[in-house]
Design a protein around this nucleic acid. Structure first.
Lengths: 193, 193, 193, 193
DNA sequence: AATGAATGAGGGTTCATTCAT
DNA sequence: GATGAATGAACCCTCATTCAT
């Protein structure tokens, strides 16, 4: 039983890996299911055992990759040991920026497809509630609903501005932009107090 | 001559209008050139006299619609008569929000496809330099490059946050979000001083 | 042993029942083996233990359902107690019409697929020889070969005319058609004397 | 214009001819659209300009071929010069039998798919009303509705019985069956008087 | 005997593009 | 310039069949 289930999960993973490579290198529109199964070495019919179509796979990939990024930020930013809310938020932001800077294809893939709704849905279906983790990580003395709005505002600013900056150096490069971004985030944080 | 040129422009417009309706109602991926020519009542071969393919038409539509929005904001927000930078920026922001709130399909169409780069390119090719107009409309006492970064930050925050808020009421509805957005923008403005 | 055989027969029956429902509701062309095994709750591989393909199953179903109809007519029409050949034939005809009228899906399923050849083959393979039973039930004083032709003529007329009449009320409804059919059958019977 | 329309009709005809050959030689289920376009030397996409799918083409073919048969019978049976109703009907019947005997593939193709409803629909859409022609050709002194039922009965008997007889010599060959059929038809005709 | 995941050939359908009119 | 019938490569998806468990 476990052997069969392992095999199934492995097939799914191989399809997702192959699709991610193709989506990020040539775009989803130009990627065909044939491309995906050929690259993963899996039969075409098998694709349809696990995904409805290439957009279904895309949604699952977006949720998966987003989760990884927040997961990494929460566990590697060292935010837990920091004293102030501002320090903790900036630590998270910097970790995320660092990941995206080094994996531009992930940024390009996720950003245009990630909305708060998709993110919330991904969170809801996952075993760990990242929003709750984020809220507790930030640990600000405000009510949860306001905190969600605050987080929303900051992370939308972060993801939308870093897109052009990291990928196109527009309107300036990341190093130039960082101080402005930090100051803007701190300003937003203080405006919520 | 002018009569012929008019006729040509009219054909182009009809194709763009039809395409916009289809792109916003069923998405660009599911829209075919056949759909577009059928809806506009123009022969299929004619499409290729004006556009390379449906993505070419899309780019032109995005630039066109974005221009309209900024155009409207600059001329209808009354920002010119306002005294402070903050007032002028908020007037522009409110006018844009108002337009997007009332034309959700425009928001859905533009947002996912609009990056600062595309916007800059659209501006560069257009007869009026909106960035210059914006800069002069805001009329803040800082150097142009910093002002561009400031505008970039604010308008990315504006467009990215209003997407989920207007279209999905996530994480809250627009009326609830407005005060937070105003305060965040003012905070960013002040952080740039 | 009998327990195992029972189990096998039960599986076969469940497959046939499921197939009949699907064949009659959506047609055989659109019915897949997957549909059949899913509906019957039996594994796909098991299908091939009992049937070569869906057409093999179809043939077996046609023979089975046709047999049931003649079986019912012979045992429920009361033809055995009737005095004349004409009365006995009409009793059989009326019983068959009654069954088909109440089970239109059976009519639709059988008719298009039933030819005298298929019927003869079904009879030959079955344990009871319905043609012999029919002949003895009708009990007309003519030689067997002529009687078979007579039966053939009458039952082809019956089945082909009742198809449109029962399923589409074309060219008229069954109640209107019955007197004409009775008179035609009696006329044919007398023409064979 | 006429040149283009001619070309269109010719394409449609070539597709129908190729399909008829394939349907009658290997059956409709085993015939693919690819087979049809390959045999007719027409591009695959063109098929879909004229037919929805292979079953749509089949329906059109059945109507077409049925029309041809009745058309031939009406114009070649010489029924118009005959004195009695019985003679005229038998002349039509014999002409039809003669055609079907010599074109078994037409019989096999048409019979299982032809119902009175399909035939009526084909008639309704055609420019000539064959039913009216038949009725006037038979020219019996009864009211039209009854005459339609009479015609229906006789032609259903004809088509259903001749199927097994011509194609399989079941329950006997055509020469043997003819006298029985003639007598049955005359008997039915008289039963309607 | 029974299972059902995996296969991949094969069929249906679409649709961007061309080109004769 | 404008047309729209024709094209056929390309893609999606199905589903009968197999076979390791």
């Amino acid at each position: 039983m476990s052997r069969i289930d392992d095999n199934k999960q492995q097939k799914k993973d191989r399809l997702m890996d192959a699709a991610f490579d193709l989506y990020t290198s040539q775009g989803i529109v130009k990627t065909t299911i044939d491309d995906i199964v050929k690259r993963s070495g899996i039969a075409k019919g098998t694709f349809y055992l696990y995904f409805k179509d290439k957009y279904d796979l895309q949604e699952k990939l977006i949720a998966h990759k987003s989760k990884q990024i927040f997961d990494h930020a929460l566990s590697h930013s060292g935010c837990e040991e920091l004293a102030t809310v501002e320090e903790r938020v900036l630590a998270l932001v910097d970790d995320i920026l660092d990941q995206l800077k080094n994996e531009k294809h992930v940024l390009r893939f996720i950003y245009k497809n990630l909305s708060w709704g998709v993110f919330r849905r991904a969170i809801d279906r996952s075993d760990t509630d990242f929003l709750a983790l984020l809220i507790s990580a930030i640990n600000a003395p405000v009510d949860p609903k306001t905190l969600e709005i605050e987080i929303y505002t900051i992370f939308e600013l972060l993801s939308s501005t870093c897109y052009s900056v990291i990928l196109d150096d527009e309107p300036c490069d990341l190093d130039t932009y960082m101080p402005y971004l930090h100051r803007s985030i701190i300003a937003i944080l203080r405006s919520f107090e």
